[in-house]
Simulated scan of single mutants.
Amino acid sequence: MHKIPTLFLRDPENRKRLLPEVAPECAWVTEGEGVATRKYDGTCVLRDEAGKWWARREVRPGRAAPPGYLALSTDPVTGKAMGWEPMGGSTFLRFHTEALAGGEDFAPGTYELVGPRINGNPESVARHTLLRHGWAAPEVAADFAAAPRDFAGLRAWVTARPYEGIVWHHPDGRRAKLKVRDFGA
Rank of each mutant, 00 (worst) to 15 (best):
M1L: 13
M1G: 13
M1K: 00
H2S: 06
H2I: 07
H2K: 13
K3V: 10
I4E: 01
P5H: 00
T6W: 03
L7H: 08
L9V: 02
R10D: 02
R10T: 01
P12C: 03
P12Q: 01
E13D: 15
R15H: 11
R15D: 01
K16A: 14
R17P: 07
L19H: 14
V22K: 06
A23R: 08
P24V: 09
P24L: 10
P24N: 11
E25M: 14
A27Y: 03
V29K: 10
V29E: 07
E33Y: 01
R38P: 01
R38A: 12
D48N: 08
D48R: 06
A50M: 12
W53Y: 08
V59I: 15
V59T: 00
R60S: 11
P61R: 01
A64V: 13
P67T: 12
Y69K: 06
Y69C: 01
A71N: 09
L72C: 15
T74Y: 03
P76G: 10
V77Q: 15
T78R: 08
T78C: 14
T78N: 08
G79S: 13
K80D: 15
A81E: 05
G83Y: 04
W84S: 03
E85V: 05
P86T: 10
P86R: 03
M87Y: 08
G89R: 08
S90C: 13
T91D: 15
T91N: 09
F92I: 04
F92P: 01
R94I: 11
R94E: 14
H96Y: 12
A99S: 09
G102A: 07
E104K: 12
D105R: 15
D105K: 11
A107E: 15
G109Q: 15
G109P: 05
T110Y: 09
E112Y: 03
V114H: 00
P116C: 08
P116D: 09
R117A: 10
R117H: 15
I118L: 07
N121Y: 00
P122E: 13
P122L: 07
E123A: 02
S124D: 09
V125C: 06
R127Y: 04
H128Q: 03
T129F: 00
T129P: 05
T129Y: 00
T129E: 02
R132K: 14
H133K: 10
W135D: 10
W135Y: 14
W135I: 10
A136I: 04
V140G: 08
V140I: 07
A142C: 13
D143E: 15
A146M: 09
P148H: 02
P148L: 02
R149Y: 07
D150G: 12
D150F: 04
F151V: 03
G153S: 03
G153Y: 04
R155I: 02
A156I: 11
W157C: 07
V158Q: 03
A160D: 14
Y163C: 06
E164L: 00
E164H: 05
E164G: 02
G165C: 06
V167F: 10
V167W: 06
W168K: 02
H170V: 07
R174M: 02
L178V: 03
V180R: 14
R181F: 12
R181I: 07
D182K: 07
G184L: 06
G184M: 04
A185F: 07
A185D: 10
